[in-house]
Nucleic acid binder design. Structure first.
Lengths: 241, 241
DNA sequence: AAGTGGTCTAGACCACGAG
DNA sequence: TCGTGGTCTAGACCACTTG
């Protein structure tokens, strides 16, 4: 008899991986907290320490966990450092990373437009929150951001809490949504009149447009962010391997 | 007695890794050829198969090797697919990857200018080869590239052989230089007059500038490439994790 | 069937951090 | 000194490729 086992074959450590991932998604281990030790997990799942290790190794490579030798394995959280720098690729001309500041221009609620429906995987008529803000580097406006979120995921966004500099931390702490990945499409465009005011530049100046969709741990689109960047003194850094 | 062993500590598999890397750099295993099996390497280096495996695992992650289950481990080469796509992040508006064609405009030799000295780590007065070419997507010019190479590394570049579409393959096959990494700085700028002619666009059109330095296996800068891209119908794709 | 990479185990020991 | 992650081994077996 031909079994389907050969088709369904998944290495043990991959299976362990999804079991562990599910726990993270379910919030059984909070971001920042330590996991049980490898030995404990091995005992619990009934596999060897090496197998647990291989699962955790892969998840650490995916930035789901952080390991600290001699201490333990931790559920990674978007620390200020990480959310600013790991997803923030704007660098000053001398190559140094810079800490951006931000100022909110507006927060409005509306019905999703075509771009939002597409990128956030919404249905016609669903509601969104739109946040417009500028980001400053060395006190000068450099980026205008247009951010869209689905209301169903972020119902009271901007109503009760202040909007912090690093949004991904807020999504995680207040809405239990963890951004793990982002896809960016870059192009050069002419600065629009409405954005020109905020960047204090003439209309038509070439700016870098970044069309970013942020994806959560469970593969759902979380945020659509359209940024316009003045790259006269800063650039976007990309390292390819 | 306090030994320095604790300071010099390097895991066995790291040591094995550098021994193996040296062989690749020395060309003892040609690109595309198969390595000895893990068991053979283990025997040769006097370690266990698992240790060899860990070394090869890391090097595979670094794109130095390619593994094929049931067949062997191979020294990776820049196949057309890889050099086009792995270092080529321009995608059409519908998200599909496109195969660029290229047309050489000029090849000249000169003394290195300031930018070249800096990026290629040259001394004042050293010679460079400059290649200017356009790249076409669907028969239309989309990219102008200004490429600079150190003459000392690529002495007869452009003299005897035709210049192929995929330069990194040429560097590898003719000059024994393997590009393993590239750093790109992106910004939006106004199209210059000299480039405008080639892209068939008005002077001043916003274009994406990519300032790329390619780095070899042994960490030396190999190539400086300044590209200007018309992003009206194409964009630059960046995936962050 | 033979050979290769891929997985898994059980157990040992090392380096690191904290008490 | 203890507990944690990190390394290493020897040996077994599985899945994939080729003859």
């Amino acid at each position: 008899m031909v079994t389907s086992s050969t088709l369904n074959y998944q290495p043990l450590y991959k299976q362990i991986k999804s079991l562990i991932l599910q726990r993270v998604i379910d919030g059984i281990w909070a971001p920042g907290s330590a996991l049980p030790s490898e030995q404990q997990l091995a005992k619990e799942f009934g596999v060897s320490q090496g197998t647990i290790r291989k699962a955790l190794d892969e998840m650490t490579a995916e930035n789901i966990f952080v390991r600290k030798q001699g201490k333990g394995t931790y559920v990674s959280q978007h620390s200020a450092n990480r959310s600013l720098f790991h997803f923030f690729y704007i660098v000053s001309n001398d190559g140094k990373r810079v800490m951006p500041d931000s100022r909110v221009i507006s927060v409005i609620r509306s019905t999703a437009n075509k771009g939002e429906i597409e990128r956030l995987d919404l249905k016609q008529g669903e509601k969104v929150v739109r946040l417009k803000r500028i980001r400053l580097l060395n006190k000068k406006p450099v980026i205008v951001e247009h951010i869209s979120l689905a209301v169903k995921m972020f119902s009271d966004f901007g109503k009760k809490e202040d909007i912090p500099n690093t949004l991904y931390e807020l999504y995680e702490s207040q809405y239990d949504v963890r951004v793990m990945k982002a896809v960016e499409k870059l192009r050069a465009v002419k600065l629009k009149k409405e954005d020109a005011i905020h960047l204090e530049l003439p209309e038509g100046t070439p700016v870098l447009e970044i069309d970013r969709t942020a994806i959560s741990l469970d593969q759902r689109p979380v945020e659509w962010r359209l940024s316009y960047i003045d790259t006269q003194n800063y650039f976007y850094l990309s390292e390819l391997t």
